[in-house]
Amino acid sequence: MIINNLKLIREKKKISQSELAALLESSRQTINGIEKNKYNPSLQLALKIAYYLNTPLEDIFQWQ
C-alpha cells in the first residue's frame, strides 16, 4: 500500500488542488483521489508532482 503526504506538503506550499492539477495537466478530482488514497498515481504523474512541489518523491509517497 502506498501512503502519501501530498495534502500536507501541498498545503504547506500554499498550493490549491486546482492549481496543482493545472500544473500537472490533470484534474482536481485526480489530486483529491490521490490525497485520499483512493487513487495511486502513475510513475509519470508521481514524478511530475514531486517536480512541481520541489520535493523528493520519497517524501511524498511511501510504501507501507
Results as ranks from 00 to 15, higher is better:
I31R: 00
A22Y: 12
Y51N: 08
A22H: 13
S18Y: 11
K12P: 01
T55W: 04
L8G: 09
G33D: 15
Q62D: 04
L23I: 10
L47V: 12
W63Q: 04
P41N: 04
L57V: 11
E19Q: 14
L20E: 02
P56V: 05
F61S: 00
L53Y: 02
L45E: 07
S26M: 15
L20A: 00
A21W: 09
Y39L: 15
Y52M: 10
L47R: 11
K14W: 06
A50W: 04
E25Q: 15
T30H: 11
F61H: 00
I49S: 00
R28Q: 14
S26P: 01
L23P: 00
Q62N: 05
L8I: 14
Y39T: 11
I34H: 01
E19G: 10
N32W: 08
K38H: 12
R10L: 07
M1N: 04
T55I: 05
R28A: 14
S16A: 06
L24H: 01
L23C: 11
S26A: 13
A22S: 12
K38I: 14
A21K: 02
F61E: 00
K7M: 09
Q62K: 11
N54A: 12
L6F: 01
P56Y: 05
P41C: 05
K7W: 06
I2C: 14
Y52A: 14
N54D: 15
I49V: 05
P41R: 00
N4L: 11
Q64N: 13
L24K: 00
L43T: 07
A22L: 12
L43A: 06
S42L: 03
S16P: 05
A21L: 04
N37Q: 07
S26G: 06
L47D: 05
L57P: 02
L53M: 05
K38Y: 13
E58M: 09
S16V: 03
N5S: 05
I60C: 03
L47W: 08
W63T: 03
N4Y: 09
R10F: 07
K36R: 12
N54I: 06
I34T: 01
E58R: 11
Q29Y: 10
I31P: 01
I34K: 00
Y52L: 12
S27W: 04
S26L: 15
Q44I: 10
L45F: 14
L23Q: 10
I60H: 00
K14L: 09
I2V: 12
L24A: 12
A50V: 04
T55R: 03
I60S: 01
